[in-house]
Amino acid sequence: MTNTDNDTPVDDAPTPENAAAEADATEAPEGANDEAARLAEQVAAVQQDLLYARAETQNVRRRAEKEVADAHAYAATKFARDILSIADNLGRALAALSDEQRADEAIKPLVTGLEATERELMSVFERHGITRIASVGLPLDPNQHQAMLEIPSDKDPGTIVQEMQAGYMMKDRLLRPAMVAVAKAAE
């Protein structure tokens, strides 16, 4: 065949050299596309890993902040549990005093001191978020009360009729359940 523009013969038939050159030209872009696709996959995987790492770091930070806040809020839990026995003994000492003993001028200063000590102890409890659990007259709550016995009563079954030992909460955590007697139907 001839080229009409400049009358030089043009061979349209593929020669082995032309075929190899054309194959290299088509393979090079395919190889480059494969490489680009592989690199794009790696970039996507690295980006996904980075997102997961950031999320995990944020979760670890939040968990650590919560643990620090809980540690501050509940640091005195063990100490508070230990002090509860002192509050119990002080309450028992005051409950053991009869009206005659309270009126006796010889021990009136002692009674006044015990009452002042109990008020101060309850004030300290209040400042640190330690509250007494209400019991008598309420229905039994197994999250706050520990039923020690059942007593025949005219009250509704499951109602607390007697508190044997006071229970306490520290903020929203149970320090010690109240030990109670619960009403049961009279037979």
Rank of each mutant, 00 (worst) to 15 (best):
Q144V: 06
V10D: 02
A80N: 07
A147V: 10
V10W: 06
D12T: 12
P142V: 13
D82L: 09
H72I: 13
L39V: 11
D70K: 00
G158L: 02
Q47N: 12
A21W: 07
A20E: 13
E100K: 07
A134V: 03
K78D: 15
Q101A: 10
E105T: 05
G129W: 03
E115K: 02
E35R: 08
P157E: 13
N6R: 05
S153N: 05
Y52P: 03
A87Q: 05
P109E: 04
R119Y: 00
A40S: 11
M164D: 09
G91E: 13
V180A: 02
S123R: 15
H128L: 10
I107N: 02
E17T: 12
V161M: 04
E150S: 10
R38A: 15
K184M: 10
E126A: 15
V60W: 11
L39T: 08
N59I: 06
V43C: 01
A103K: 08
D24R: 14
N6F: 11
D7I: 05
E118K: 09
A95K: 11
A75F: 12
A23T: 14
A116P: 01
Q48I: 03
T8Y: 09
Q162G: 01
P16H: 08
R38M: 09
L149G: 04
S123I: 01
A21Q: 12
D154I: 05
E126L: 04
K155F: 09
G113Q: 08
P142M: 08
V10S: 03
L84F: 04
E126S: 13
A64C: 02
I133F: 03
A71F: 11
E65I: 05
P109K: 04
L114E: 01
A178N: 04
Q58E: 15
V43M: 06
D70W: 03
L90N: 02
E100S: 09
T57G: 11
Q58R: 11
E126R: 13
E150K: 06
N33T: 11
T117C: 04
P177E: 03
Y52D: 15
E41R: 14
D88R: 00
A147M: 06
T8V: 12
D24W: 11
D82P: 02
A40F: 09
T15Y: 01
E115H: 00
L174G: 08
D7N: 15
P16W: 07
L175H: 03
A80S: 12
E30L: 15
A13F: 11
K78M: 10
Q101S: 07
A32Y: 08
D49I: 01
E17Y: 03
H128W: 14
P9W: 10
A178T: 04
V60K: 14
P142T: 14
D5P: 00
P139M: 12
I133E: 00
E118P: 00
E22F: 12
D24M: 14
V124H: 09
I151D: 08
R38W: 08
G137H: 03
E56A: 15
E65L: 11
A71G: 15
E115A: 06
M164G: 07
R132P: 00
A69Y: 05
A25L: 13
S123E: 11
N6L: 05
T15K: 00
D5G: 04
S153R: 01
M148N: 06
R38P: 00
A23K: 13
A37Y: 10
